[in-house]
Every structure is written in structure tokens, then in C-alpha cells.
């Protein structure tokens, strides 16, 4: 129980917010808008899971927003060229993996600091995309939205994919050797190396995985509407890093789990609709989000102090 104190406290805050909403704005709990909210956040959740793994190995990737945009636009263009959904998905995931592998190679093989490398790819990918597309929308063929099915079916499918990603990764982290390696490398790379783990491979692997998940998330976002805006994904990196941190993934590596990330993302995602329901003016949104992040890290700090 104590081990999961951090995750439980996030869940507690989330429940507190929901209770407050139930009291002050019961309208918040309507099936359709809630399902819509969850579906809109599903791609971010998938990226956040990948990000959590990267942070657990003591690295960071701030280029995911740009990767997301590139994958979205390429997926949209492929779809417009008439490729089927499965092919588009595979190619987008492959493209994401390649972009992730580029970061992973620079970080793991050359030993460059991840925050700087991904700062470079963040700017280069975003501006490269602007250069080629000049911000123009991509129009998708009609049968592409909701995977060619009804809206309800499509939303359920997307939610199922997101849950599947969380469950699989979470289970792998806990019960499979590779998953334990992630924690081992993040806690102490040198000790991990001495015990026969290859930290560089693990680091490379998590970057590729994050890239692949970002590609998948891009498709999950693209199928939700009939047009792709090249700007989509702008600022995604901050959102998912914040979700991971609020959800209890330690930025110093080796600690955290995906359920915490899930609750963290939900908490942050609820802020904006909650403000609308509580009739709070939009000017305060960024300040409130910043406050939540600071509270979460302060809680982390207090915990660290008490243990020490």
C-alpha cells in the first residue's frame, strides 16, 4: 500500500475534483461528452505511456509533439492517396519508430544528453514540416473517419486500443524481464550493466517504443476528424511530461507506474472542461495547470524528505 502512496494520492485528488464537480456541476457527468473527452485524450495517453518509460530510464524526449505532427500529416497524406487504414497505421508506426530510433541512436550510442538531442529534433522536425506544408490542412477521404465504422464503434475501438496499450505495457513492466530492465537502468545504469543488462540497448529500445507509440497515437487522432491540421500536437510534449510527473514517475529515474500516469493525465485533462462547467474564466487555465504540477512535485519532495 505504501509503495503506491503516490499513485493513490493522485487518484485521491482526481476523485476529489470529480466529487466537487458532482456537487457543483452535475452536468459534467453525461455519457456522451465524457466518452468524447476520453476519446480525445486517448492519443495523449498512449504517448504518455511511452514517455513514462523514457523518463523511468532517466532520459527525456521533448520532440514527441513534432513527431506527432509529422506522423499525423504523413498518415493523412497517405490516406488521401488512397491507402487502406491498416497500411496507413503500419506506415505511421514505422515512421514514428524511425524518428524515435534517430533520437535513441544519438542518445544511447553516442551518449549525447537526451534533453539537448530532442530539443534539436523538436525544432528541426517542426520547422521542416512547416517548410514543406506551410501549415496547410490535409483533407481525408470520407470512409477514413472512425475507421470506416460508426462514431460509437470508432470511439470504443480507440478507447480499447488505449487501454490495451496501458495494460500491456504495465504488465510487461511488472512481470517481464525487459520491463524490470527499464527500472534497473533508471535506478543505477552502472549497477545494471554490471549485472548483465545492456543499458544502451534498453535506452535505445524505449526511444523507439516511444516513437512507435507516437505514430500510433497520431493515427488515433487522425481518424477522429475528417481533416488534419499540421499544427496538431503542438505542445503535446509538455502535456505528457506533466502527466507523467503528476502521476508519480520520478524524473530522476527508476520509479513510477503507468496507472499513475493514467490518473495524472485524466486529472490534467479534466481541468479545462471542469473550468467551463464551474464557469471559471479561461484566463486562469494555464496558472491552474502550473499550480497542479507544482503541487504534485512539492508532494513528491515532501515525501522524499520524510523518508530521508
Amino acid at each position: 500500500m505504501k509503495r503506491y502512496a503516490r499513485e493513490i494520492s493522485v487518484l485521491g485528488v482526481l476523485l476529489l475534483l470529480l466529487c466537487f464537480l458532482a456537487w457543483r456541476a452535475p452536468d459534467f457527468f453525461q455519457a456522451q461528452p465524457l466518452r468524447s473527452l476520453l476519446t480525445r485524450e486517448a492519443p495523449a495517453l498512449v504517448v504518455a505511456c511511452g514517455m513514462a518509460l523514457v523518463i523511468m530510464t532517466r532520459q527525456i524526449d521533448i520532440s514527441v509533439g513534432s513527431q506527432f505532427s509529422v506522423c499525423s500529416v504523413v498518415a493523412g497524406l497517405l490516406a488521401a492517396e488512397g491507402f487502406s487504414i491498416s497500411v496507413v497505421t503500419m506506415l505511421a508506426v514505422a515512421l514514428g519508430s524511425v524518428l524515435g530510433a534517430l533520437n535513441g541512436f544519438l542518445v544511447a550510442a553516442l551518449g549525447l544528453p537526451s534533453i539537448v538531442v530532442t530539443l534539436g529534433t523538436l525544432v528541426a522536425l517542426r520547422q521542416g514540416l512547416n517548410l514543406v506544408r506551410q501549415g496547410e490542412f490535409v483533407n481525408l477521404p470520407d470512409q477514413f473517419q472512425w475507421l470506416g465504422q460508426s462514431q460509437g464503434w470508432g470511439q470504443n475501438a480507440l478507447l480499447a486500443v488505449a487501454v490495451l496499450v496501458v495494460v500491456t505495457l504495465s504488465w510487461t513492466l511488472r512481470h517481464v524481464a525487459v520491463g524490470r530492465y527499464v527500472y534497473a537502468v533508471g535506478s543505477d545504469g552502472e549497477a545494471a550493466r554490471l549485472s548483465g543488462i545492456r543499458p544502451k540497448r534498453v535506452t535505445f529500445g524505449v526511444f523507439v517504443l516511444l516513437g512507435a507509440l507516437t505514430g500510433l497515437a497520431a493515427v488515433m487522432n487522425v481518424v477522429q476528424s475528417p481533416q488534419v491540421q499540421p499544427l496538431s500536437g503542438l505542445g503535446l510534449e509538455l502535456k505528457v511530461i506533466a502527466a507523467a510527473v503528476v502521476g508519480g514517475v520520478a524524473i530522476s529515474g527508476g520509479r513510477g507506474n503507468l496507472w499513475g500516469v493514467f490518473f495524472g493525465l485524466l486529472l490534467l485533462a479534466c481541468v479545462s472542461p471542469a473550468m467551463i462547467h464551474l464557469r471559471i474564466e479561461a484566463y486562469w487555465e494555464k496558472a491552474i495547470q502550473g499550480g497542479i504540477i507544482l503541487l504534485a512535485v512539492a508532494a513528491e519532495g515532501l515525501r522524499g524528505r520524510n523518508q530521508a
Binding site: 510527473v245 494555464k286 496558472a287 502550473g290 504540477i293 512535485v297 515532501l302
Partner: peptide, 25 residues
Amino acid sequence: LITGFRLPPLIVTLGTYSLFRGLAE
């Protein structure tokens, strides 16, 4: 926040990044 709570600067300033801009708005 960084010294008092021994928090990683990246995360603290990520929080204040939103906070300061939010206050300005």
C-alpha cells in the same frame, strides 16, 4: 522549490513555466 524540497529543476520550472505565463494572462 528546488533547494527547499530537493526537487528536480526541470520539473519545478516546467510548473512555473505554466504558472508565470498563466499569471501574465
